[in-house]
Design a protein around this nucleic acid. Structure first.
Lengths: 344, 344
DNA sequence: TTGAAAGCGCTAACAA
DNA sequence: TTGTTAGCGCTTTCAA
């Protein structure tokens, strides 16, 4: 174990101890003994000593030499958001399965920190980059379009830029949810949005509008509000609409945090779900079934997004010239519970 | 930017382009121009070119040379658990603030994976280790006791081993919660435990028993159940007690997941909180206020645990010989909502 | 069948 | 004021 500086086990040390060259030791420990027809005894003695000394090769040195660090970088806007935590879980598990390490950066929902993170990661010699972009600007990503550097986006992508991505089928998710509300008699559906101009938000708005259109329900911009995925936005926007006495019978919340904020506003206004108002929220979480009432949700396969993204990334690392599917959309699933009332 | 292998900007390249040695370039870019009295012009030209070329030093090479990678390793049992995600958030943010990078490993609640993670992290040349141990065995950590290698545990620690740690004051948390239940007239309190033999669990049991003792309430082992922090355990143990018609008026759940499982069992049994049964849960989360009913909780400062642990770790990295406080306990806070009924 | 030497990119000791 | 040299630990020619 390399805990102690002066006791670090290196090829050199093993070689010296056995009276042979580092080269031979390296070859044996990399499984090239046969190829170089190294004598069985030498091989055995090296393997034995390496095991005794618990030799672990320095990936630093190896990375420097081979330009191969078996490390990928992961940039996440906020690891304490359960949706992203779940993506990170998929990423670390799948990376580890492929013997890759993950360096994690938290961009704190801030493009500048995102840019800085990229620099830090590159200086650490990552072989590929997995990025959940903050999402509004992509100027700093343009250079990757023509570059051979392996990169995959997750959750959010940019239509104006061709970089592979893995995301949920947000269009279908929002459309299905809206459709479900319509089938239950709702026509005035508050659309509680997250950060506008991000791909998930735009796709969800399209899905929402498509469902309305399919039932010839006119779009009412007055009840399409919000511009951030957080709880505060859900609270203030809902409260605002309530105070304005806007006319709506259901809320479609674009994130679990927006939903919680809306819930807070409703409870302050003494309104009950689903009696006074119906609701559907994006993101399924274990607690959703225990809310008051159990919440109907649009579940995303968040861990799978992370796994799939790693797989794409490793493919690109292994063969940078093979073309990668530009975008992968994972299905969403409407989980019906009790937060939607059937209007007669 | 080091995206392109053949275009990687190095000290050598800058030196060659300017007709000076790498040494000089290195000194200037490390801010040692003054110390070596390097001429203003040389300095200016180097700084200018480095900026133009967007030079970013290879931390790999630097790490190899200096034995200093400005990287710490973080091992977490399950990043998709919001409690650990929150710790990870504190860790990444605080590490970044100190210009350190974080390599993340998910041990998946498995000691063998934890051990493997350590090896991987060491091979990557981490300067220090931040470990949320799975918690039951610590054989593999013994070697750190006498070692100078910087390590800090978070959340769980081992009394039989002297390694610095940061955790919640779980004893006080459980004691306060139990006390609150007792004050509300409860004497038969189901103690829904997580993994036995882990420090958080043991400390919470002690707190629970201390509160009972303080009110001369005998301990009833029949209603002290559970052996895992997950949802399934909460469900099956609660269900079991219910079926056995055990006599209890309140539940103290040792994690948010246990609480959710208990909730599921109660709802199947058509029991309502707090009318039929009272409940308090460890871990506060944003959704807790919106459960049915709003849940009284014991909040932990999870993000602060991560931050504090990083600070301790960096201290140890900077001065390995200065003695570190062996254990730091962060306060918990009882957040009273509506899940506890006052028995007359 | 084995080794010597070079070099990945960087910094530090020693020289000049 | 600047440069030469060595070396971190590893792999890979090239040579024997």
């Amino acid at each position: 174990m390399s805990m102690d500086v002066n006791s670090r086990v290196t090829l050199k040390r093993i070689g010296k101890q056995l009276g042979i060259s580092v080269t031979t030791v390296s070859r044996i420990l990399n499984g090239h003994a046969r190829r170089y027809r190294i004598s069985k005894e030498t091989e055995k003695s090296v393997v034995k000593l390496a095991a005794e000394l618990k030799f672990v090769p320095s990936r630093l040195a190896r990375g420097l030499r081979l330009n191969k660090t078996t490390t990928i970088g992961l940039v996440i806007p906020d690891i304490s958001n359960p949706f992203f935590a779940s993506i990170a879980n998929g990423v670390t598990v799948e990376a580890h399965r492929n013997n890759y390490g993950v360096i994690l950066c938290d961009s704190q929902d801030n493009v500048d920190m995102e840019i800085e993170s990229l620099e830090v990661l590159f200086s650490r010699g990552i072989e590929g980059l997995l990025l959940c972009p903050v999402g509004q600007s992509c100027e700093h990503l343009k250079k990757f379009e023509r570059s051979r550097f392996p990169i995959v986006l997750a959750d959010r992508y940019f239509p104006q830029i061709t970089i592979p991505y893995v995301a949920s089928d947000n269009f279908a998710g929002a459309r299905d949810a809206t459709q479900y509300l319509i089938e239950n008699g709702h026509r005035q559906i508050m659309c509680l949005q997250g950060l506008r101009n991000t791909s998930p938000n735009k796709d969800r708005v399209r899905g929402y509008e498509a469902a309305l259109a399919a039932h010839s329900i006119p779009v009412n911009r007055d009840i399409m509000v919000g511009n951030s995925f957080n709880e505060q936005c859900g609270y203030s926007e809902t409260r605002q609409l309530l105070e304005n006495k806007q006319n709506f019978t259901a809320i479609l919340a674009f994130s679990n945090l927006l939903m919680l904020g809306a819930l807070r506003a409703l409870s302050e206004a003494k309104l009950r779900i689903p009696d006074n108002l119906s609701m559907i929220s994006f993101d399924d979480q274990p607690y959703m079934a225990h809310l008051s009432p159990p919440m109907t949700t649009i579940a995303q396969e968040s861990s799978e997004i992370g796994q799939k993204a790693v797989r794409l990334l490793l493919e690109r690392i292994q063969s940078p010239d093979k073309s990668t599917p530009e975008g992968v959309l994972l299905p969403t699933r409407l989980i019906v519970r009790e937060s939607v009332k059937h209007l007669n």
